[in-house]
């Protein structure tokens, strides 16, 4: 018995169990995604300083393919001979501004409404819920078409329309989260200690609600960039000659059979940006959402 247990102990001391290595997944993809986003933001900010011809001036023959040599001609020219690279870079401004501003506005308005509704309850909550449900039930394209036919198409109109679209989703998300958190004991305790509504909402509930909503933000921004593209494609987005990615696809669609790059280059830019935003959103959520670790 003793010898046996000694032998077993001897084996156990030598053999280290083979633990499979835990790999950090998707780190390269995430790094590429951040790299792309950083590049897009940087060139959009520096668009006026870059050594590029204006996006409205023709730089050569129309419908040239991508080529080396001149920076202007790197991605070729569009149907009017304008530099596609310059138009993509200036288009990034519109797309990013629309995505970021409409996304953030929707985030702020929706979160405020949802948190107040979920926290205060009662009639205000019913009202918030009714508005959010009504807006969600309304077909988004019809809303945008209606808006652009009533108001003149401009960046501002687009922003108003797209913000309206994303407010209800944020409202519902914030409301549901707030309901769950405000029943927690630490909130009850804070209230008992005499903390006011403002303090409870800002210091106790908001930090808990924020990770879930913040992780959703990049995904919403991505959806908004696509939405802006679709609207411009329908001719309801940014009026020409200001470029936007969707508008460029729309301009090139008639020549797609002979000159596919006119459509594929802006489409690729949209794809990469949206994909990167989604990757970044997932990464941020894993990194900062403490409730996930619980």
């Amino acid at each position: 018995m003793t010898t046996q247990s000694h032998a077993v102990a001897g084996v156990a001391a030598q053999a280290e169990p083979a633990v499979p290595r835990v790999r950090r997944t998707r780190s390269i993809l995430v790094a590429l995604a951040y790299g792309w986003l950083f590049t897009v933001i940087a060139v959009a900010l520096l668009a006026d300083v870059l050594p590029l011809t204006s996006y409205a001036t023709p730089v050569g023959f129309p419908r040239q393919g991508p080529q080396w040599g001149s920076l202007d001609l790197l991605l070729g020219t569009d149907t009017q001979g304008r530099s596609i690279l310059a138009r993509c870079i200036h288009g990034a401004r519109v797309s990013l501004v629309v995505g970021a501003v409409a996304g953030l506005l929707g985030f702020v308005i929706g979160t405020t409404l949802g948190m107040l509704g979920g926290y205060l309850g009662g009639r205000f909550d019913s009202l918030v819920r009714l508005i959010a449900d009504t807006m969600l039930a309304f077909p988004p394209l019809i809303l945008l078409l209606a808006l652009s036919s009533i108001l003149t198409p401009s960046v501002r109109t687009l922003l108003v329309g797209l913000t309206l679209l994303v407010v209800p989703t944020f409202t519902r998300l914030a409301r549901a989260n707030t309901l769950a958190w405000s029943a927690r004991e630490f909130v009850l305790a804070a209230r008992n200690m005499g903390a006011g509504h403002r303090r409870i909402l800002l210091k106790e509930i908001l930090p808990n609600v924020l990770p879930a909503l913040g992780a959703y933000l990049p995904i919403v921004m991505a959806a908004l960039i696509v939405a802006e593209g679709s609207l411009s494609f329908l001719g309801l987005g940014i009026p020409p000659p200001t470029p936007s990615w969707g508008g460029m696809i729309s301009d090139g669609k008639d020549a797609i059979a002979d000159f596919p790059h006119l459509v594929f280059i802006p489409a690729l830019v949209i794809f990469l940006t949206v994909f990167s935003l989604n990757q970044a959103g997932d990464h941020l959520r894993q990194r900062f959402d403490r409730t996930l670790h619980d």
């Binding site: 927690r184 004991e185 630490f186 305790a189 106790e204 930090p207 808990n208 990770p211 403490r290």
Partner: peptide, 9 residues
């Protein structure tokens, strides 16, 4: 105790 403490503080 898992529910009564504020998880982000």
């Amino acid at each position: 105790p898992g529910r009564s403490l504020n998880p982000v503080v």
